[in-house]
Structure formats: C-alpha cells, structure tokens
Design a protein around this nucleic acid. Structure first.
Lengths: 237, 237
DNA sequence: GTCGCCCTATTTGTATTACTATTAAGTGAC
DNA sequence: GTCACTTAATAGTAATACAAATAGGGCGAC
C-alpha cells in the first residue's frame, strides 16, 4: 500500500537505494567535495532516519560505483572523480539534472564516435546468421517507421539497431557498452530537446555494409551517421 | 586467527566474495548454462556451508555484475551472456584461467583499437597544464626505463602513460575505461607470455603530439602503436 | 626528554536472525 | 470452465549482535 504510493511518488525501490541516490546526488553535484570524509555511520543513520544496515548497504552500493571508499577508523571518504564509474546506468540516471547536460551529451557523442564505427566494422565481420536476421528485422521496422513518423517508436527501434550491432561484434567487451549506450540514449532523449531526424539513409548504408560483410564500408557509414548527429547537437558550435 | 589462515590459503577476502567467485566461475565456464535457474537459497546455503545472508550478498554481488537475476517465487536464474558486465575488474579477474585467454586478448585489443586513438586525440585537445606535466614526467620515466630495461617497471610506467591519456581527455566516460584497460593490462601481462618490446618510438610520437596539441597526429601515432602490438600477438594469424 | 611499544576506543566489516512483501500455483465457488 | 481468493514458497528488508582493524594516546624504558 504505502509502498505503491511511494513508488509513484519518488521512484522508491528500496530504502538503501533511496539513501544512496541522496548521497550520490550530493557527491555528483559537488555539494560534498572530492576526498572529503563524510560523517560517521551513526550520524548519517540519524540524519536519514534509517537503520545502520540500510545505510551500510547504501554506502556499499556507492562504493561499488567508485564514489566512496571506506577505511576502518578513518571513516568513509568521497573518492576523486577519476574513480567514478560513469558507465553505470544508475549513476547516469542520478546524474540527470545536476551536471551540465550538454557537456555530458558531448562526452556521450565522443564515446559513440570511438566505439560505433569500430563496432560496425566488427559486426560486419563477425555477426552470426541469427544476428543478421535480427538486424534485418529491426532495420525493416526502422524503414517502416521512418515513413509515418513516430518519435517514440523510432527511438526504440534506433536504439535496438545500434544495440544489435554491438551484440554482433562477438566481442565480450562491447556487450556491456551496448547497454551503457542504450541507457545514455534513453537518458538524453528524455531530458534534452533533440528531436531526431531519422537518418534512414545513413542507417541503410550501415545495415547494407554489415549484411555484405564489408567492415570498412560499415565503419565509414557509421562515421557519417555520427557526423550528421554532431551537426544537430543542441548548443555547441 | 582462522581468518588470517584462510586469507593466505585461498585469497579470501570475505565469505560472500568467496562464494560469489565460486558461483561466477561456474557461470563463466558454462558449467551452469545461461538462463538456467540455480538452486534455491537454502540448498546453496547447505552446499557452501554459509549463512543465508552471506549467500544473499554473494548473489547480490553477481546480480550487480549482470550475471544473475532474481524473481520472487521463481528463483534466481543465470542471465544470458549479453548482460554480463565484462568491464568489471573483479569479473575479469575471475575470468582468468577459464575462457580462451587468447580470444579475450583479441577482444581486448579490439577495444583498445577503438578507444585509444580517440582518447589520444581528445587528450591532445583537452589536457590541462597539470595533466601535461604528469604525462611528461611519466614519459621521461618510460624513456629512462627503456634504456636499462626492466619489464616490471616498464609495464607499470606504460600503463600509467595510457591511463593518463584517458584521464586527460576530460571526458567523463573515458575515466572508467582507463581503469578497465589497466585491469586488463595487468591481467594479461600476468597470465600471458607477451614479453614487451618497448615501442618507445611510438610512445614518443604520441607523447609529442599530445604535448603539441595535435589531435590528428596523436590519433595516428596511437593507431601505429596498436598495429605494432597486434603484430606481436601470441597465436592469432 | 625522546623514542618505541602497547593498549584502548572508535569505526568499519561480517554474520545470524526475524520479519515483510511479492507472486505463482492450487483450490473452491460461481 | 473460468475467475477470484487463499496459500505456501521465495526473495527482499531491517535490526541486532559480534568481530576485526587501526589511529591515537599513554606509559615505560633507555
């Protein structure tokens, strides 16, 4: 009962996640400085009105994301920024609305810039038959949607398309990155005013190259797609 | 007492990590299949001789790495491989000695291929004065070490050099990747027989380009370094 | 007086237990 | 036969008790 209520109210999942989110936002926003030692557990327990266990779980969660670091007798300190794992969906989620969103978006594009062309090339070489079928289906859907345009469905299909490319690389390390990019994708279409041009032509070029197994062509096509994305970047240049 | 003993014996850190490692290896090695439901908590508790809490923490840890997924009443199931977060140091650690190490190394090189040239280019554009000083110091050290060669110290410096490049990009998303690559680096120099040629010339080229702020040159130099690395890949081609 | 060792208090880390919410499945009524 | 309600099983949450580690201070010896 109260659970359902709070869920719609504040996005509550569980106590410790709630607490973790609170602390994370303080850290990410700079309200508590890097390398600063946060108050002892007992104090925080009182502050958040939660049991020590819950607070400890929250701290543990943040530690696993690289935001905090605990040592006996000295306390828990905020780590320096270079240790923060920005490739974490939850962290990314917490980030929305605090930092400079355009800067984050630029960083996001940079990452896509590095990864996607290479992923497309690898996919062209390594995609399995099954993956090619999936990719084919998804592209056809994109093609269809691009005709009678529907932003939401387009975004969905677009994301799936790029995700499939990452999965098709056959490279273990690209798999988690696919999820990361998807999360950012969602995060940015939700919070920024980038209304998508469909780029169906560029997508077709990538698609065709992958299906043909032409790695270089796939890479090149993806570079072109990204350069088009860059041109419609909101505020920079 | 018994703690210290077990620590030297099996590299034990804590109970749940030990259990998690055990389960993770079963999953990663394929001993338990993807999408398979693992036995209920009580059964596993008996099997591992640990309390329910410890086991739950282990499961939670694995869940956070994307290996498991729990649902009430149905149990805990192994997720499909595409959800496994291979960009996790601990997971990478657990991976050593089970999969095809050469395949993983190839994947690792692919990732470097995508990321490092772009990172070098970004670093050339965005490195702060302080970061340039650090980079300079590290390179000089590399230069020195390359003369009277010492594998261990050289590896250390090499890693630091590439890490600094990632940090100097000023891109939030490259920061965690720096750590990931370092972990893999360590993992591979420890478990593979790649005796390094120093590549001091290529490193100098990258270094100079970054210091000069020439992004394209930095990118190109890094591509060349990687192509050299590729040539001394153990078993492939 | 200073150096070094040990003791203690504080803070994190670990484990056991008890309780709550969720949900699939089985049972009964309409 | 279908739908709803109850029930049992399992995961999730929280509180408590216990253990280990360490920094800092105090005490003693040189």
């Amino acid at each position: 009962m109260h659970n359902a209520f709070e869920e719609i109210a504040g996005g509550k999942r569980s106590l410790h996640v709630q607490v973790a989110r609170e602390i994370a936002r303080k850290i990410l926003s700079g309200e508590v400085a890097q390398n600063e030692i946060i108050p002892g557990e007992m104090i925080l327990c009182g502050q958040f009105k939660v049991s020590r266990t819950s607070l400890r779980e929250a701290i543990k969660l943040l530690t696993s994301k690289g935001l905090l670091e605990s040592k006996p007798k000295v306390g828990t300190r905020v780590t320096s920024r270079e240790n923060w794992n920005f490739l974490d969906s939850q962290l990314l989620d917490w980030l929305t609305g605090i930092g400079d969103n355009n800067a984050v978006y630029r960083d996001f594009l940079s990452l896509r810039n590095a990864l996607e062309p290479e992923a497309a090339a690898l996919a062209a070489e390594n995609a399995t038959a099954e993956q090619r079928i999936l990719l084919s289906a998804t592209f056809q859907q994109m093609d269809y949607i691009s005709k009678n345009f529907d932003l939401e469905r387009w975004t969905e299909a677009d994301m799936e398309f790029h995700r499939l490319i990452f999965l098709s690389t056959g490279n273990s390390f690209y798999l988690p990155l696919a999820n990361v990019l998807c999360t950012m994708f969602k995060s940015f279409i939700a919070h920024s005013s980038i209304k998508g041009s469909t780029c169906i032509g560029e997508h077709r070029a990538i698609y065709s190259a992958i299906m043909a197994g032409d790695a270089n062509k796939a890479r090149q096509a993806n570079v072109e797609l990204l350069s088009k994305s860059k041109r419609r970047l909101p505020s920079t240049e």
